[in-house]
Design a protein around this nucleic acid. Sequence first.
DNA 1: AGTGGGGTCAAGAGGATGTA
DNA 2: TACATCCTCTTGACCCCACT
Length: 300
Amino acid sequence: MNNLSRLDLNLLLTLDALLTEQNVTRAAARLHLSQPSVSVQLAKLREALGDPLLLPGPRGMRPTARAEALREPLRQALQALDNAIASPLPFEPAQAHITWRIAASDYSEHSVLLPALAELRHAAPHCRLALMEVPSTRLGAAMEHDKLDLAIFTRSGAPLDLRSRLLFKENYRLVCRRDHPELQQSPDLAQFCQLEHVIVSPDGGGFVGSTDEALAALGLTRKVVMSVPHFSFVSAVLSRTNMVALLPERLVRDDPALKILDAPIEITGFDKVMLWPERVHRDPAHQWLRELIARAVAAE
DNA sequence: AGTGGGGTCAAGAGGATGTA
DNA sequence: TACATCCTCTTGACCCCACT
């Protein structure tokens, strides 16, 4: 690129027009410039390339051997540049080969990605999904360093500088196994506090959640006996024990082994959102994926 | 406000062409 | 062949605009 750094690249457009027209006046008309202006540009090209490039001839100019040798490579290079900066072609999922990298918890996989999966495989059979768990603290950096294209996350705690779209508002429900001996109906507060609870703590080891804060405000505590990092394991735990859990409704509503009850205390739900960096905001392939996911979730 | 780059306009130079 | 005319390119003067 050392040769190019000395050259105003606009001059290459002038050279292309000059080689096409072999006439400064007509090249100027083609470039929507005055003839003297193109004449000056030709002088700069001669200086930069160390060759007269075009010599006076009958009814215009004749290219030198150097100019003739430049004609085709220049044409191809300008065409390639033109293609590179042209508006992106519309995304064609049926032909595309692309890997989308998505951060999602197991709950997000179940509630957001699973509903979209069948249509995604059908519409884009050559594309791949790479799902990964990324903690919220590393989300922004992963997006910025081109390691992640999309995240399915809660709005609270999400980096503010990412683009976002609300997918749905989720509520917590009290969940136990279908034949739980003590819970034929929703418990009152006293019974709720006596039950053995399992909670999800993505960072591991946590035994206190927003439910405990709400109970504390009433001067109450509950019995949290287990904390697990993943939502999916909670379902297995509930179906084999007498433990209960407050879980996102979409995670458990189709599980025949579980019973869903109203909790005796108001627990604030959360907004489930898609997050993505500015880098892929206008990219047709990523726009298509986000639209497909949003549509699939809305149809649930 | 000064500076530099890039534009236009006007004038001039030089080669090609037409005609006597 | 000589000369007039035309066409095209180059150059200088000046203007505008962006940048410092």
